[in-house]
C-alpha cells in the first residue's frame, strides 16, 4: 500500500491504496465519488471518463500511481467549469439522458472536445465521441446537445 495525495475537483485528497489500483476505484471506493461509472473496465466504453490535467482519461485503466501531481476533475466538479456548465445545461435542455449510466462519461468527453474545438463539425463529434458507448442509443440527442452547447460558446 502507498500513500497518494491527489487534487480532485480542486480539493486535496489523500488515499492509501495499492499502487496498481485504477483511479476509478480510488474515486468510487476510497473517495466515495460515485458519479464516475464502471462500465467495461477496459477503456472500451467511456463511462469512467474523467479529466486528468485537462485530458479526457479512462480512469478504469489508469493506475493511481501514474497520476502524479496532475489535477483530476470528475463529473462532480465539471459544473464549476464554464464549458462544463454550458454542456450540463444543454444536456438538461435537450433532455439527453435515458438510463443515464454512461452520461457522466459522455459529458466529460464532450467538455474535452468543446474546450479544444468549440465549433465542432459532425466529423469532429463522431471522432471524439466514437469511444463513448450508450446502450440506450441517445446518440442523436447527444449530438443535438453538443451543437446546442457549441452555440453558447464563443
Amino acid at each position: 500500500m502507498e500513500n497518494y495525495k491527489l487534487t480532485v475537483n480542486g480539493q486535496r485528497k489523500e488515499v492509501t491504496v495499492d499502487p496498481g489500483t485504477p483511479l476509478l476505484w480510488v474515486l468510487r471506493e476510497d473517495l466515495k465519488m460515485t458519479g464516475t461509472k464502471y462500465g467495461c473496465g477496459i477503456a472500451a466504453c467511456g463511462a469512467c471518463t474523467v479529466h486528468v490535467a485537462g485530458v479526457a482519461t479512462r480512469s478504469c485503466v489508469v493506475p493511481v500511481s501514474l497520476i502524479g501531481d496532475r489535477p483530476i476533475v470528475t463529473i462532480e466538479g465539471i459544473g464549476q467549469d464554464p464549458v462544463g456548465r454550458v454542456v450540463q445545461d444543454a444536456w438538461v435542455s435537450e433532455d439527453v439522458v435515458q438510463c443515464g449510466y454512461c452520461q457522466s462519461g459522455q459529458i466529460m468527453s464532450v467538455v474535452a472536445l468543446l474546450k479544444r474545438t468549440p465549433k465542432p463539425t459532425d466529423t469532429n463529434i463522431e471522432q471524439s465521441m466514437g469511444g463513448n458507448i450508450c446502450r440506450c442509443g441517445t446518440y442523436v440527442r447527444i449530438r443535438e446537445a453538443i451543437k446546442a452547447a457549441s452555440q453558447q460558446l464563443k
Binding site: R116, T117, M129
Partner: peptide, 23 residues
C-alpha cells in the same frame, strides 16, 4: 488522437502493469 479520445486518454507515461495498458 482527437480531443476526448487522445492517445493519453489511456496511454500514460509508463506501462500500466495492473491494467495492461502500454505507456
Amino acid at each position: 488522437g482527437v480531443p476526448g479520445l487522445n492517445c493519453a486518454t489511456c496511454h500514460q507515461g509508463a506501462n500500466a502493469d495492473s491494467t495492461g495498458v502500454p505507456g
